[in-house]
C-alpha cells in the first residue's frame, strides 16, 4: 500500500468509533467501583459497626484519601495518555492525596501518645488488607487498562502504573468499609503498600497492553 492509498483508507474511516477516551475511563472507574463494591459485599462485607463508625473522622478519612487518589490518578492517567502532554506538570496532580495522608499522619502523631503508635500502625488486620485491596482492585485494573488502550502514552509502563494506582485506590476505598483499622498510621503503611502493589502490577501489564 502506498502512502496516498493509506491516506484514502484512513480518510474513509474519519468519524471516531466508540466513546471518547475520557468517557471510556469514567465508565471504567464507575463499572470497576460497582464490581469492587459487589465483590466486597459478597466476600468480607462491611464491618459490623459500619453505621456507628460513620461518626468517626478517622473512619471517614480513609474514604477521603482513597477517593482523592481515585480522582487524581484518573486525571493523571488521561494526561499521560495524550501525546505531547506535559508529564512533569501532570505528576503534580498527585499532591492532593499525598498532602491529605501526610497531614493526617502528623495529626495522629500529635494526638496519640507515642506508646500507642505501634499498636495503631500494626493494626489488627494488615494481612487481610494486603490481600483484599489488590483482590478488589483486579476488576477495576482490567477495566482501566482496557479504557486506556484508547490512549497513546509516551511511556506505557508509567501509564500502567497510574492505572494501577487508580485501581488500587478504588479497591482500597471499598475495603475501607470492612477494615477495622482506622488510624492514619495504618493507612499510611498498609494501604500504601497494597495500592503500590497494584500499581506495580499495572506497570507490568501496562508495558505490554498500553504500547502503541
Amino acid at each position: 500500500m502506498k502512502t496516498d492509498d493509506l491516506i484514502l483508507a484512513l480518510a474513509a474511516d474519519a468519524r471516531p468509533h466508540g466513546p471518547s477516551l475520557v468517557a471510556g475511563l469514567i465508565g471504567a472507574v464507575i463499572a470497576g467501583g460497582l464490581l469492587a463494591a459487589v465483590a466486597l459485599l459478597l466476600t468480607l462485607g462491611p464491618r459490623p459497626d459500619f453505621a456507628a463508625a460513620l461518626a468517626s473522622p478517622r473512619f471517614l478519612f480513609k474514604f477521603a484519601v482513597t477517593a482523592s487518589l481515585v480522582v487524581t490518578a484518573a486525571r493523571l492517567a488521561l494526561v499521560l495518555s495524550r501525546p505531547g502532554a506535559d508529564h512533569l506538570r501532570a505528576l503534580r496532580l498527585l499532591w492532593l492525596p499525598a498532602v491529605l495522608l501526610v497531614g493526617a499522619v502528623v495529626v495522629e502523631l500529635l494526638s496519640v501518645p507515642a506508646t500507642g503508635w505501634q499498636a495503631r500502625l500494626v493494626g489488627t488486620n494488615w494481612a487481610v488488607c494486603l490481600v483484599a485491596v489488590p483482590g478488589l482492585s483486579l476488576a477495576p485494573l482490567a477495566l482501566a487498562l482496557w479504557a486506556l488502550r484508547r490512549g497513546a502514552p509516551a511511556q506505557a509502563p508509567v501509564a500502567g502504573l497510574v492505572a494501577g494506582l487508580l485501581a488500587g485506590a478504588i479497591g482500597a476505598f471499598f475495603y475501607a468499609a470492612h477494615c477495622p483499622d482506622d488510624s492514619p498510621l495504618f493507612v499510611a503503611v498498609w494501604y500504601t503498600l497494597a495500592i503500590g502493589a497494584v500499581g506495580a502490577l499495572g506497570a507490568v501489564l501496562g508495558a505490554r497492553l498500553l504500547r502503541w
Partner: peptide
C-alpha cells in the same frame, strides 16, 4: 510516515 499517519488516525481521540 505511514505508521505516524496510522497512529494519528487510530489515536485521534487523544
Amino acid at each position: 510516515v505511514q505508521e505516524t499517519l496510522l497512529a494519528i488516525h487510530l489515536k485521534r481521540q487523544t
